[in-house]
Amino acid sequence: MYDIVILQKQWIKGLSVRTTNEMEQTNERKIAPLWQQFFTQQLCGGHAPVIGLYSDYEKDENGAYLFTAGQLVDQQLAQDAKEIPGSTYARFQTRKGPIEEVVFETWQQIWSWDQRYLRTYTGDF
């Protein structure tokens, strides 16, 4: 299930790694260890939501992309932060459950949705 929302430009600051969906299906995956590093270093603080941002796509879901584990920050703190462009987004809702299961299920919904609608590959979070 999803709805369409219009969001203003935002910034996220955290840890980033370049990876592919193919790599994330192997023992060489990078996203799960990045989340562990993010929480181990206690980089999350304050009341801002913790999010994962997929950006800087090489082409589409079959190419490399940058994954950032971080928190939204104010524009004043945006130095060295990744910009999430202001745009119209499809916002998908998930069930509560183990994070790896829920994220995978949601990506399956997005990939199915992507077959019916135009996806820009500018940023997913």
Rank of each mutant, 00 (worst) to 15 (best):
K13P: 00
D3M: 12
I31R: 01
R119G: 05
M23L: 14
Y117R: 08
T26P: 03
Q71G: 07
L118F: 10
I31Q: 02
K13V: 02
V17F: 02
T122E: 12
Q76G: 04
Y121M: 11
Q8R: 14
G45S: 14
E100P: 09
F67L: 04
L7G: 01
Q93D: 07
Y2Q: 09
G86R: 07
I84G: 07
T94K: 06
R119F: 08
P33Q: 02
F104K: 14
Q41M: 06
Q79I: 05
G46I: 10
L72P: 01
P49L: 10
F38R: 01
N21E: 03
Q8S: 15
Y57S: 08
E61W: 06
T120R: 13
A69R: 01
Y57M: 08
L66W: 01
F104A: 15
Q42R: 12
K30L: 11
T106N: 15
R29I: 11
T40H: 04
N27S: 13
K96Q: 15
D124K: 01
A64I: 04
K13Q: 09
E58P: 04
D60P: 13
S112Y: 03
Y2P: 07
I51F: 03
D74K: 13
S87E: 11
L7E: 14
E105P: 05
T94F: 04
Q36L: 08
E22N: 12
W11I: 00
G14C: 02
W35E: 01
Y89F: 15
Y57G: 08
Y117I: 06
G123C: 11
A32I: 15
I99Y: 07
S112R: 11
P33K: 04
Q75R: 15
Y121A: 11
G97N: 06
T19W: 01
Q8C: 04
P85E: 06
K59P: 01
T68A: 08
V17D: 03
P49C: 08
F67D: 00
G70T: 08
R95A: 11
Q42I: 03
T122Y: 02
Y117D: 11
L15Y: 00
H47T: 10
Q10I: 00
E28V: 00
G97S: 07
L34H: 03
K9R: 15
F104C: 04
D60K: 07
A81H: 06
V17N: 00
Q37H: 07
A81M: 06
T88R: 13
D3C: 14
A81L: 05
W107F: 10
Q76F: 08
T68F: 02
Y121R: 09
I51W: 02
I99M: 12
R29M: 09
L34W: 03
R116P: 01
I110H: 04
K9A: 13
Q25Y: 03
G63T: 06
Q41S: 09
S87V: 01
A90R: 04
F92Y: 01
I99A: 10
K96T: 15
N27E: 12
Q25R: 13
V17K: 00
L66T: 15
G46N: 08
L34E: 03
W111H: 04
L34Q: 02
Q71M: 14
K82T: 12
W113Q: 05
Q71Y: 05
M1I: 11
T94S: 15
E61S: 11
I51D: 03
F104M: 10
I51M: 12
S16C: 07
K82A: 09
G63C: 10
Q37T: 14
L43R: 09
T19E: 03
E28L: 09
I6Q: 14
